[in-house]
């Protein structure tokens, strides 16, 4: 009699196999077909998949929150190590910046005074201060497909589709999908990101287009535009999705194309600040699903809609 040992089981007859070890099964083939079907649906951007994704985000967000507990010390160590290596360079840069800022400080004060006088004279409408909410990054996307991060605030905290997200460096993206307790922020480097910007002191207008590379490219720049390497790129506010004047990055030239080197380190996002920037054009980008899902609850919880009727309250509310 042939005695075969497979794993911890003793197989006493020829042809006997351990349970679950019957090679490639029919189920495997079925799952491959299912994967391919899902890929096709993803390619077609089926709405059912988007809804399912949102539900899964909400379901898994507590798990991801928990997973961040051991992650924090790892990130801290990695941050310390990288800081140690870049500290000398940073110190030199800071000394130079400090010198330059001191030189221009008196000039800024003078301009501020003049601006305040002129504003008072011409009765300029002041920009409303934006409400903000700081959220932690729970997960980030990988691969060449999408550049986005998932944050731990959603409709319950008043975070809705279209709101811009920034960090200490500047603009990082905008909320494109908000669940009850989590939301997805599409980064400025994503293929689908389009942001109207102004460049440099000459205020040249352009469109910053993400292409899944580290630096978004600039499109629709006037032929006679006078630009310099290192010019500051800020949001222009055109279209209303982003407030005017938010820092994004600096102008660089790479492979013959004008690109923006973002100030924010998009690979190491830990916390982001969501700006509750309401504008009429935002309503056009929303499908009405997000606010309808929670309705007045978002307002009750102290979101930007607190104290006023919800934007989508109406007959269609269930």
């Amino acid at each position: 009699m042939t005695i075969l040992k497979e794993d911890t089981l003793i197989l006493t007859r020829r042809g006997m196999r351990a349970p679950g070890s019957q090679g490639i099964r029919i189920l495997w083939i079925g799952l491959v077909f299912l994967s391919l079907a899902l890929l096709v649906l993803s390619r077609l951007d089926h709405s059912a998949l988007r809804t399912a994704r949102g539900e899964v985000f909400d379901f898994l967000s507590p798990v991801l929150e928990l997973a961040h507990v051991p992650l924090a010390p790892v990130r801290w160590v990695s941050h310390q190590v990288s800081e140690y290596f870049t500290l000398t360079d940073e110190l030199d840069q800071l000394r130079r910046d400090n010198q330059r800022l001191r030189e221009s400080e008196w000039r800024v004060k003078e301009l501020e005074r003049k601006l305040s006088d002129l504003s008072a004279l011409s009765r300029v409408v002041q920009d409303r201060p934006e409400k903000t909410l700081t959220s932690r990054v729970l997960a980030n996307s990988t691969g060449v497909f999408v550049r986005s991060v998932m944050i731990n605030s959603g409709l319950q905290q008043g975070v809705d589709n279209g709101y811009p997200a920034v960090n200490s460096g500047g603009v990082i993206g905008r909320v494109v999908d908000s669940g009850a307790a989590a939301a997805r922020v599409l980064l400025i480097t994503d293929y689908n990101s389009r942001i109207p910007v102004r460049i440099g002191q000459s205020q040249v207008r352009a469109l910053m287009v993400g292409d899944n590379s580290d630096m978004p490219r600039l499109a629709y720049i006037a032929n006679d535009a006078r630009l310099n390497k290192g010019d500051e790129v800020v949001t222009s506010g055109v279209g209303g999705l982003f407030p005017r004047g938010l820092r994004i990055g600096t102008l660089v030239q790479k492979d013959g194309q004008l690109r923006v080197a973002p100030h924010a380190n998009l690979d190491r996002l830990e916390y982001v600040r969501v700006l509750f920037h309401e504008s009429p054009s935002l309503e056009l980008t929303r499908d009405g699903k997000s606010k309808r899902r929670l309705g007045p609850q978002a307002a009750v919880n102290g979101g930007p809609g607190a104290g006023r009727p919800p934007a989508y309250a109406g007959p269609e509310l269930r």
């Binding site: 890929l39 390619r43 980030n140 990988t142 497909f145």
Partner: peptide, 17 residues
């Protein structure tokens, strides 16, 4: 992984299979 990284659904599922 596909769901949490916002990639196309089925890509990493297929690769892992």
């Amino acid at each position: 992984v596909d769901l949490l990284t916002n990639g196309p659904l089925g890509f990493w599922a297929l690769v892992y299979l």
